[in-house]
């Protein structure tokens, strides 16, 4: 377990947090890692808070529980900070990435005294600029890869292009926009 990176995603139903967690598992697998990507299922409805998880390791992973002491947390919807203690159990040596137009200094007061690193990513701005629509999961995925360094950025981009080609085989027009969103995020999030 010591060599396993644990990531917890907080989002709302319909925002793609689950898809992002599965995509992260996908690319980390292609980078030669042992991976887990799994959502926590409750009553499924648009807008309801959802949690998804990743474990990424160089060794075989057998644990099948949820993640209570993550190394990293990704918050796909800033509004969740008011209702959920997203930093619960979060490793102070790790980091949290929040989708917000605000600087980290304005987010920190809402994080229940979390002392680790705090990053913000304006996924709305990036997504609209790159895709013309608001899909926060690609920017947030790139942000957590940059922050957690679970894999090399160039390898991440190469593998993501393959994943998008597979995932969007019936709508190839969105592949370029998503790739652009990933690149813009990697340039914006300075770790």
């Amino acid at each position: 377990m010591k060599n396993t990176v644990e990531i917890r995603w907080h989002g709302r139903g319909g925002q793609g947090a689950k898809t992002a967690a599965l995509l992260l598992a996908d690319v980390a697998f292609k980078a030669g890692k042992y991976v887990q990507g799994f959502p926590e299922y409750g009553p499924e409805r648009m807008g309801a808070p959802i949690t998804a998880y990743n474990r990424i390791s160089d060794e075989k992973i057998t644990v099948h529980s949820n993640i209570y002491d993550p190394d990293y947390v990704v918050v796909v919807d800033e509004g969740l900070l008011d209702s959920i203690d997203v930093t619960a159990g979060l490793n102070p040596e790790g980091a949290i990435v929040v989708n917000s137009a605000k600087p980290a200094s304005e987010i920190i007061p809402k994080l229940h005294g979390y002392t680790g690193k705090v990053y913000t990513v304006d996924a709305h701005k990036i997504s609209v600029a790159a895709l013309g629509k608001y899909f926060p999961n690609s920017p947030m995925l790139a942000a957590i890869v940059a922050v957690s360094k679970v894999m090399d950025k160039e390898q991440f981009l190469t593998e993501m292009e393959g994943s998008y080609k597979h995932k969007f085989s019936k709508k190839p027009e969105v592949i370029d926009g998503n790739m652009k969103a990933l690149r813009m995020t990697l340039e914006e999030v300075l770790v």
């Binding site: 598992a25 991976v35 887990q36 799994f38 959502p39 299922y41």
Partner: peptide
């Protein structure tokens, strides 16, 4: 197999 835990969890 266990619902969601393995049925919906992606693993190697």
């Amino acid at each position: 197999q266990d619902g969601f835990i393995t049925s919906h969890g992606v693993e190697n």
